[in-house]
């Protein structure tokens, strides 16, 4: 911090995920392959898959909101300022969005194709 450049958070996030980067890349590659499979099969049920992915994202976000303080060795009682709750909500939202996006290709394939 301290006159931190505007791009700094990008590198911090990258370093945060560096230990699991191979796994993350694997998930992205698998997702790309799943998207390709869905595309090649034709007529994917995009809207249904989007809905299911959003539900998954919401569930994950709720779980993240409840578990994130414990993940940092803190308790919900340690959240005492408005910013604590805002940041928790944002972190949970981000986690939910990320998981929802990553889940979308699999959900899309599992949703099958549109008939007719």
């Amino acid at each position: 911090m301290g006159n931190m450049p505007i791009y700094a958070p990008l590198f911090v996030i990258f370093e945060m995920f560096r230990p699991v980067l191979p796994w993350l890349v694997a998930v992205v590659v698998i997702d790309a392959l799943l998207l390709a499979v869905a595309a090649l099969r034709g007529a994917p049920r995009g809207r249904r898959a989007t809905g299911v992915s959003i539900v998954i994202g919401i569930v994950v976000a709720v779980i993240a909101a409840l578990r994130l303080p414990a993940f940092t060795h803190a308790g919900l009682g340690d959240l005492v300022t408005v910013m604590d709750f805002v940041m928790l909500a944002l972190a949970a939202l981000g986690t939910g969005v990320a998981v929802g996006i990553l889940a979308f290709p699999l959900v899309l394939v599992l949703s099958g194709t549109r008939r007719g």
Partner: peptide
């Protein structure tokens, strides 16, 4: 508050 603690725990090492 919790946010600086969360930074210490999760963000400062990266």
């Amino acid at each position: 508050s919790w946010v600086p603690w969360m930074m210490e725990e999760l963000m400062l090492r990266p």
